[in-house]
Amino acid sequence: MLRPALFLGGVALLVFSMAVSVRIGISDIGYADLGRVLGSRLGLAVEPLPPLVDSLIWDLRIPRVLLAAFVGATLASCGAVLQAVTGNALADPYLLGVSSGASSGAVSVVVLGIGAGSLGVTGGAFAGALVSFGLLMFLLRRSGLDSVRILLTGVAVGQLFMALTSLIVMASGDAETTRAVAHWLLGSMASARWDGVAICATVTAAGLFVLWSCSTALDGFAFGQDTAASLGINVRTMQNVLLVATALLTAVAVAFVGAIGFVGLIVPHCVRFLVGPLHRSLLPFSALGGAVFLVVTDAVARVAFAPQEVPAGVFTALIGAPVFAVILRKRGGL
């Protein structure tokens, strides 16, 4: 079969891009140094690097590349799932207003100083995402999750939380808060550390497994909810499971790296050209594609304007918007 070979090729590409990405940055790291860092962690008898160089590789670079891979996989898979569930090719994890909710949560934590520290901000983002998602579900409780309604309600919820974020920032009037929030909203991997990787890895693995287990049902959504129901899919339950799963996954991604757009939009579209629209293949390949895309994009963001670091979200948009335009042209509409 072609697919396993192609998948292994994708995994190889991901490993390769991570191996290359981990080297590049403000100072290029040799594989010998990388070996010494890993070797000393494994307790091998290697001469350790100077603590700051070791810290650069072990505390910053490696977690950053891993986090990019997990977040990319998460966003791309969530995009593919939401496009199927809402029957809308423009769907994307940020569509549901989850990222805006997460922003509000993070900003509240920063401004109100609740449980400051890195976990505080992450926890705030997560709580905000859940609150916005809860509001979305509350507003949709009667409408039967019709695809257009999900989109419009998501946009409305998103706008509401954007306004809330602005309000909190304005009221605080603190220049440093404003800066931190603006930076975070652009989406950057600069804050990646091991704690984020651990949480992201766990949630991503569990979440993607749940999404993948719904592949058959997701295919059934291709012709809308009526057809899905006539194929024996419990549409309401399935939608709830999938929306909650994608909201959680997105919330975690947003909490750690901010709002990185377009990954969930363009990666699934590109992957469909490659492996077709059936979710059994589409989801794992989207995860791989998203991981590779974000790992590479973040590496580019690190070095393109050195010594300045550009937030990865800026680059995903710079690459994503034209690619998306090309996809739309090729498909001749939605």
Partner: peptide, 23 residues
């Protein structure tokens, strides 16, 4: 059940659509 007008945005092939019947 065969509904009235059901379309899809996807790149499904004919065999894929028929395979949905096995869901």
């Amino acid at each position: 059940f065969v509904g009235q007008t059901s379309h899809t945005a996807g790149e499904l092939r004919v065999a894929d659509v028929v395979a949905l019947g096995r869901t």
